[in-house]
């Protein structure tokens, strides 16, 4: 049981579940009735079968070798940066480029160990601001703007 609870085995099991879920989804949809090889799902099904087979081999290997993953220096830092990155890349479309970038830059600098608030604030405002100025106002290649103003 211990062999199945390590990080590598859990990632591989997750991959297997994703692969089998996608494979199952090909039967839930209706596709045109053409010869097997010319069916739109022939190639993806072949690839997904190889995906599942290789995941099982990798899982057996992982359980046999029982190798530990590289240690994480600070789990909190990585988790926060992961969440921040995902939120950041998802909110740019709604809130514009500048405001989420200021928040992201401040968070990222803090997580990477910059503690001087003046440096953090300066960088977090100046770098995204310079990008907005360059792309929106000089190159006329606009980045998304916020709902509050069309300027940034």
């Amino acid at each position: 049981m211990q062999k199945l609870l390590n990080e590598q085995a859990m990632v591989l099991m997750g991959l297997f579940l994703i692969g089998s879920g996608l494979y199952a989804s090909t039967f839930a949809q209706s596709f045109s009735n053409v010869a097997t090889a010319q069916s739109p799902v022939f190639f993806p099904r072949t690839i997904l079968m190889l995906w599942m087979g290789l995941t099982l081999i990798a899982l057996v290997q992982a359980m046999h070798q029982n190798e530990a993953s590289a240690p994480v220096a600070s789990l909190g830092r990585v988790a926060l940066l992961l969440v921040t990155s995902v939120v950041y890349t998802n909110v740019i479309g709604h809130e514009g480029f500048f405001l989420p970038s200021v928040v992201f830059a401040a968070m990222s600098l803090h997580l990477f160990g910059i503690r001087n608030p003046i440096v953090v604030a300066l960088y977090a405002v100046v770098v995204p601001g310079a990008l907005v100025l360059l792309f929106n106002h000089m190159l006329s290649m606009p980045l998304p703007v916020s709902r509050f103003t069309h300027l940034f």
């Binding site: 990155s85 992201f104 990222s108 770098v127 990008l131 792309f135």
Partner: peptide, 10 residues
């Protein structure tokens, strides 16, 4: 690292 993420988003 922060600049990489901002530039990649752009």
């Amino acid at each position: 690292m922060t600049a990489i993420v901002l530039l990649c988003a752009v």
